[in-house]
């Protein structure tokens, strides 16, 4: 296939970026989107140009490192699919494709398509864990967990922290990311002792990091490669209300 790419190029966080056009010819429809960029980069290097920087690692849709806006959609046109798992057979021969980094105040651009998502780690630091120092655990079967709760916790826990939810949100909110962790841990008996401090702490960290508020636009769950449901945000709000009411 032959494609016309318009790619965001930016040298460093402080410089101005711009869209640059590249013609990419002779791409296999079985190649992944990132493999198509690899091919382009190999050609750029041999032509003496600077290759396009982009984040990626596992290339099997689980590490959460890759992510870019493809024709204005986080991770591109295929539902429930990370950029690395998107294959070129979903594009048309001769198509023009716009490729941009995540756009969000809390995710500054590092270079080209690479952004800094450190703010996600700071949300987890503020309570996205269960305090269980190594060695202190009771037998795993000491506390049975109803299957329905365990399954719901698992669904929430599948979040890969890629940031597509933030990039898609008109407010640049990380509420779905935060709600996924609050939901995962809050659904389990082991997560109850810290349930109140967790939700309050994580929401404070969320706001401090510069993420916007949630207005239930629902764009987040639409682009989420793991299909994290919007209902978790309702659950987070309910947990938050209970926590602050108790605290007084």
């Amino acid at each position: 296939m032959n494609l016309k790419l318009r790619v965001w190029r930016q040298t460093d966080p402080s410089s101005r970026g711009r869209m640059v056009t590249y013609l990419v010819e002779d791409i296999s429809p079985d190649a992944s989107f990132l493999e198509m960029l690899d091919v382009l980069n190999e050609r750029l290097i041999l032509a003496g140009d600077e290759p396009i920087a982009f984040d990626h690692d596992c290339r099997e849709g689980i590490c959460g490192m890759c992510g870019m806006m493809i024709n204005g959609v986080a991770h591109g046109p295929s539902r429930a699919t990370t950029t690395c798992q998107l294959h070129m057979r979903h594009f048309k021969d001769g198509e023009t494709i716009d490729v941009e980094p995540w756009r969000a105040a809390a995710f500054p651009v590092v270079k080209d398509l690479v952004v800094d998502r450190g703010a996600f780690d700071s949300i987890i630091q503020a309570g996205g864990y269960i305090s269980a120092p190594t060695g202190a655990a009771p037998d795993a079967h000491a506390t049975p967990v109803p299957k329905v709760d365990a399954d719901a916790a698992f669904e929430a826990a599948t979040c890969i922290g890629c940031g597509a939810c933030v990039a898609a949100c008109p407010n640049g909110s990380a509420m779905l990311f935060t709600a996924a962790k609050v939901g995962h841990l809050g659904l389990l008996p082991q997560g109850q002792p810290e349930r109140d401090t967790r939700v309050v702490g994580m929401l404070e960290a969320h706001d401090e990091a510069g993420f916007g508020g949630c207005t239930n636009a629902g764009e987040c769950t639409t682009v989420c490669p793991k299909g994290i449901p919007l209902t978790l945000i309702g659950r987070l709000n309910s947990d938050y209300r209970k926590a602050v009411t108790k605290r007084g």
Binding site: Y129, A136, A137, A150, F154, Q190
Partner: peptide, 9 residues
């Protein structure tokens, strides 16, 4: 045991 205590689902 350790992982269950941490909330691994």
């Amino acid at each position: 045991d350790q992982c269950v205590a941490q909330g691994v689902p």
